[in-house]
């Protein structure tokens, strides 16, 4: 465990322009392959911005991942950015859909550290920048399916979880990856009540975590992740129900046994470890066959939910021979 305190006049990693941005600066300026004109690599060039600007939406320098696009989902437009950042679940800031946006306004995500422990070669406490900056930020448009039968189409910005895991070097004993959300009731007022046990914990099987679709996410809509959406760092696993995509991660542990998951602890009958999107396995209290795409209006028809949220051809083989209604 190494925590180094930076000197006050020292250039922080967050202020250093990543090499790939510097080397591609012409491309960067013309905006080819980049999101936003005159984009600032948020988190990376955050120090150059006035504090007021930095706390507002900060544009990220990303490349678009051609494998995961809006067109690939057969959608004309993503969910309205305001909808995606004002209608969501994040019980750490309250149980209402608007609570996270309302109650996270004062939350200061940075500085942030992530503790890496367990069966891994490079354990330690990593600064947010040290964890993210070695990797290329990419934009991926995914369908996001909540277990409550609503969905969104969101352009996330993040880095491949698999690449991060490779860098951390899990040992052969690492069969699962466990994640933990910040527990700090003073900063996360929803934690003063207990609708679910705290801290929020989640987990993936190693092959799920290593899959190309798994995204360690730091932004959405080309900008730094809003507090209410799990700033500064969250997971996005698009073939699973939304609650698997744990927010505001402070710990990543490599473990041998299947780790506990918050909703499974809270209600094992309703929420299993896998929680793969599956239109054929009902939630005990509602059908999962259809979903409402939020923001489409009061008379909009519901969409038929696809097996593994439409990612069956990519992740289906992970579950070959597994009874999905037993391992829900």
């Amino acid at each position: 465990m190494l925590i180094r305190k930076p000197r006050s006049n020292e250039i922080r990693p967050s202020e250093i322009t990543p090499r790939h941005v510097f080397e591609n600066r012409r491309q960067f300026m013309t905006g080819v392959g980049m999101v936003g004109l005159g984009a600032i690599a948020g988190g990376s060039l955050g120090g150059l911005l006035a504090p007021e600007t930095a706390s507002a939406a900060t544009t990220l320098a990303t490349i678009k991942n051609d494998k995961y696009t809006l067109a690939g989902l057969g959608e004309a437009a993503p969910t309205d950015k305001v909808v995606a950042s004002t209608y969501n679940n994040f019980y750490e800031f309250g149980t209402g859909k608007g609570d996270p946006a309302d109650n996270s306004k004062d939350f200061q995500p940075l500085p942030w550290t992530v503790t890496v422990d367990g069966a891994v070669e490079n354990p330690g406490t990593y600064d947010f920048d040290d964890l993210i900056n070695p990797h290329q930020l990419e934009e991926r448009v995914y369908r996001f399916r909540c277990v409550e039968a609503w969905s969104m189409v969101v352009p996330w910005v993040g880095i491949s979880l698999g690449e991060v895991i490779r860098r951390l070097g899990p040992t052969s004993n690492a069969k699962y990856v466990a994640f933990e959300t910040l527990y700090d009731p003073e900063r996360m007022p929803g934690q003063n009540r207990s609708p679910i046990p705290w801290p929020y914990v989640e987990g993936l099987r190693m092959d799920e975590a290593m899959h190309d679709l798994s995204l360690l996410t730091v932004g959405m809509y080309g900008e730094v992740l809003p507090n209410q959406n799990g700033a500064p760092i969250r997971l996005i696993v698009p073939w699973k129900y939304g609650f698997k995509s744990i927010k505001s991660i402070v710990r990543i542990s490599f473990v041998e046994d299947q780790p506990p998951c918050t909703w499974n602890i809270a209600n094992a009958r309703e929420y299993g470890f896998y929680s793969n999107v599956n239109p054929e396995v009902d939630h005990p209290r509602w059908s999962q066959a259809k979903e409402r795409i939020v923001g489409t209006g009061i008379f909009a028809e519901r969409r038929k939910t696809e097996m593994l949220n439409g990612y069956a051809d990519q992740v289906g083989s992970l579950y070959d021979g597994m009874d999905m209604s037993k391992y829900y």
């Binding site: 309205d80 305001v82 909808v83 004002t86 209608y87 859909k97 608007g98 609503w150 409402r292 939020v294 923001g295 209006g297 009061i298």
Partner: peptide, 17 residues
Amino acid sequence: AFTPGVGGSGLGPNPQE
């Protein structure tokens, strides 16, 4: 329902709910 708002009207992004 007849007031403009996030997601179309004052009823919000998921008006049915």
